[in-house]
Design a protein around this nucleic acid. Structure first.
Lengths: 223, 223
DNA sequence: TGTTGTTATGGAACGGCGTTCCATGGGCCG
DNA sequence: CGGCCCATGGAACGCCGTTCCATAACAACA
């Protein structure tokens, strides 16, 4: 692996771990997860696949690095607010929107759990859980329940967006889904059929935050 | 695609969608997600890769079918209990244990959301939410919050199990993780470092159920 | 400035993947 | 018995991640 050393200026177009990771993020955002290959990445950087391996061990490491770069930016941008409750909502919204904008981040978070990206989120949540006054052992429980919920819902949400072509807009998508649910077997899926009617006009982010409030209410009730 | 027709008995070793899916499940359980290839599957069924495509459109469909078979078995085996609260815990435990035993099921659930397997779980949860007395619009919110939490935590848990070789046992795993967390930067990760001490002796399933109770407490509080 | 050794590059090649193609065989119906 | 369609399975295509290695760029020293 390469450690670019010395203050001396190497060639202008020199590769570096950072340049590679940035290009990978661009590629993932533009072409989706399947658009990132060592060949496409190399061609974007005007080099060959072999050269990349001097800076990065394998594709897994590349994906972790790309995810970490994106998540680090996210947690850094969460606005400071007055109450822990609001702060947790802020983190939740940040993660939700990040994964919505970069669906590959979600997939990566569940594929490689408890890597640095996950820990960044966990840490931010944990501090606020502490600030809520949750006692010792319950801090871990509360923080990891929130983490799992936030990441879990965000992934589901982002995956939904890719169920149909990007051209299909949100209202049409919900209508299609609702119609499909209504055609399910009446005996096997009574509940799903009933709530299908609620699907159009459904606000994912609001629903998500309502879930956060549910969990926070639970934490408060059992404090 | 093939529709095996007629009551007549075809050759003894005839392929069928069902035989293929069963063999795929075996392969996934024994060799993990990367162990399932059309070639390995064909050789287990003593045929060639091309023959499989008569019964199954592509690998995605195969994975959905395999996941659905496993999840269907799971929801069918959830024991009947007295209260909706207990019933939801029962479903949660069933899903948790299924994904723990078949980690590939978890990956698949988040990759292809709102396919039949997810709907099966959603339906069971929804009925119990209804039985809890949750009112109209809140039913959807509550059921999908529970679904996301249950699937999200189960996936994280199963992924943890694959972080190290299967030979490493659970206590060693938690010790290693705890040690790693304690070495994080003191200024950037104060919370994570503090709860690292709680990691050994940590009971994932109990923690998971505690989170369920948190959410149910929240649902009850806001009913 | 010339020489030497390390750092870094990038093209070629390897094995394996999902998928497609197509020549062939088994079983039913006229 | 002959024709036909369902079903089979092996070969081939184009891609992937990764490895290998010849060689270019650069730093240090004579």
């Amino acid at each position: 692996m390469g450690t670019t050393k010395r203050g001396s200026e190497r060639r202008e177009d020199a590769l570096s771990r950072e340049r590679i990771v940035d290009a990978a993020i661009e590629l993932l955002d533009e072409e989706g997860e399947s658009g990132l290959t060592f060949r496409s990445l190399a061609s974007r950087l005007a080099t060959g696949p072999g050269a990349l391996y001097w800076h990065i061990a394998n594709k897994g490491e590349l994906l972790v690095a790309a995810t970490d770069a994106v998540i680090a930016r996210t947690v850094a941008q969460v606005p400071a607010v007055a109450t822990p409750h609001e702060a947790i909502r802020g983190i939740a919204v940040g993660v939700f929107e990040t994964i919505d904008a970069h669906p590959w981040v979600g997939a990566q978070l569940s594929r490689a759990p408890w890597e640095t990206p996950t820990l960044r989120i966990f840490e931010r949540i944990g501090r606020q859980v502490q600030a809520l006054g949750v006692s010792g052992r319950a801090q871990f429980t509360s923080a990891s329940a929130l983490l799992s919920y936030i990441v879990g819902v965000s992934i589901q949400n982002a995956a939904n967006g890719r169920l149909f072509e990007p051209s299909v807009d949100r209202a049409d998508f919900l209508d299609t889904m609702s119609a499909r649910w209504k055609q399910l077997d009446a005996h096997e899926y009574p509940f799903t059929r009933k709530v299908a009617a609620q699907l159009p006009g459904h606000d994912d982010l609001a629903e998500f935050l309502a879930g956060i409030d549910l969990i926070l209410a639970g934490i408060a009730a059992s404090r």
